[in-house]
Amino acid sequence: MSTLVEVKNVTKVYKRDTMEIPVLQNISLDVPEGEFLALMGPSGSGKTTLLNLISGIDQPTSGSILVGGTDIAKLNESALAKWRSNHIGFVFQFYNLMPVLTAFENVELPLLLTNLSKKEKQQRVEAVLSVVGLADRMDHYPKQLSGGQQQRVAIARAIVSDPTLIIGDEPTGDLDRKSAEEILVLLSRLNSEFKKTIIMVTHDPHAAESAHTIQHLDKGELKSN
């Protein structure tokens, strides 16, 4: 399998006033296409920072990050926004749905950045909502849905534009055991059935078991296992 994500010698230092806080130190990591990778580690180990860098919502202090051959560390802000809309599907811990939009409209959001026709958008949204098992809840607002259902809407939103990479930041962190299990099954299905590459940050060893590979981060460094 070819390498989809290449993280090369990446360092990330946050500056707070005059203090420099190193978060990631000289990290290198390859993620092959079709991989389901879990990033684990204690709080403050830098796993979310690494995820943010790979997903292009943050920029490294040094090093390069190639996703599908594009060095995203070199893109400017506007190019990066366009790149994210084409290549990244986000699944957040707290779902981050727009409370005033219905499930359908939330899922449709990423497609508003494409040139698809209204009809194509509708077909895509309906298709992904069926994949996550919420075809009958399209007109529901987030507050009318359970946590698990909201996260499934978020997953539908993450896959609707058929991104290269799905990024999950503690996707089961806010869910009860049963709902968490359903989300993990769904992610595994997306990986095995739809060949989606997934990188997921998690605290939960049980959640990490769904992944093919687990990488541990500690104090800004990768501990290979």
């Binding site: 919502i57 926004a81 994210r84 809309s85 409370p99």
Partner: peptide, 14 residues
């Protein structure tokens, strides 16, 4: 704030 962050992450520009 979170909604704005999310929209930006999804690729909506400033």
């Amino acid at each position: 704030t979170v909604e704005i962050g999310t929209l930006r992450a999804l690729g909506f520009r400033r």
